[in-house]
Nucleic acid binder design. Structure first.
Lengths: 155, 155
DNA sequence: CACAATTTAGTTGTGGGCAACTCATCTAAC
DNA sequence: GTTAGATGAGTTGCCCACAACTAAATTGTG
């Protein structure tokens, strides 16, 4: 049927790109009252799951490198949601701790996923299948933030 | 099973966010030889489908506003892929035209979607279903770049 | 112990992406 | 014809995201 391999709508990439923006846009008005952007919200989710993570662990969990995380964490710290402490055992690692305010913010956020899901208009089964397919994509191109500097490529 | 409504992996948003980044990262090495970034590639796809579109049409097609498109198009023009011409009938509209170099670039790009799809490791039927679900998401939160300034909200 | 290789955060530079604005032009209503 | 409102493109400011780099600390090896 489709004769143009470069047609925007016939590929996966554009719908993926586009729906990601749609979902982030849907989050925006829900997160604005909390004073969070969407990536900041993801960091908070990771910290609500497990407080006191090092920056490196957080980066692997979210697929973000230090060039993204460092300034983002600085903003979260400036707005009083987290604190950063340089480790004593290993002085390279910086541990990210929720402040009491940051921990309390969880209560304001707990209703957001359900509200958002309702907006998407997907059946529960569809959501399960969608999550499975997206996870499959992530697993292929390893989710790791991709060591970019060349660590002696063993070729 | 799941008791934490804020768990990163149990929602749709994080897999969506994460797989979008994975796919863009997979495109990067394929697009680098063409001298294109992923958003620039999307603009080229739109122009290869239909040359000579006004900036506004391009923006609606891709879901991007002028704040994103204007500098992006300026870079594409600087690298010789497109030209911009201000309209004569309506002097507000700027029409984007492929240069011969930009049109020729299509030949270099035509094999990319297949190469990328192979990397994703999805069955053909899975890809069809995934595209359907993503399109459903896009349709809910209107794909329009969302007029942000308030044009006399008729409330 | 000495020293190379690795790891951790951070910084800089470039390119999206959106909000909010400006400016010019066009259209509609009068 | 004037003028109010709408529209198209652009700019500014802020935030994310990645590449490439730096500096400091740690680990491993001889």
């Amino acid at each position: 049927m489709q004769i143009n391999p470069l047609a925007l709508d016939e590929q996966l990439c554009f719908p993926l790109y586009s729906s990601e923006k749609t979902v982030v846009a849907a989050y925006r008005p829900l997160l604005a009252p909390l004073g969070l952007t969407y990536p900041q919200y993801l960091v908070m989710l990771a910290l609500w799951e497990q407080d006191g993570q090092p920056v490196s662990t957080l980066g692997r969990r979210l697929g973000l490198d230090s060039g993204t995380l460092s300034p983002l964490l600085k903003r979260l710290e400036a707005s009083g949601r987290i604190q950063r402490h340089r480790g004593t055992a290993d002085e390279r690692v910086v541990t990210v701790q929720l402040t009491s305010e940051g921990a309390a913010l969880r209560e304001d956020a707990v209703g957001i996923p359900a509200r958002l899901f309702a907006q998407l208009g997907l059946e529960a089964a569809e959501a399960v299948e969608l999550r499975r397919l997206l996870a499959k994509i992530c697993s292929t191109g390893q989710a790791t933030p991709a060591r970019t500097d060349n660590p002696k490529d063993p070729s």
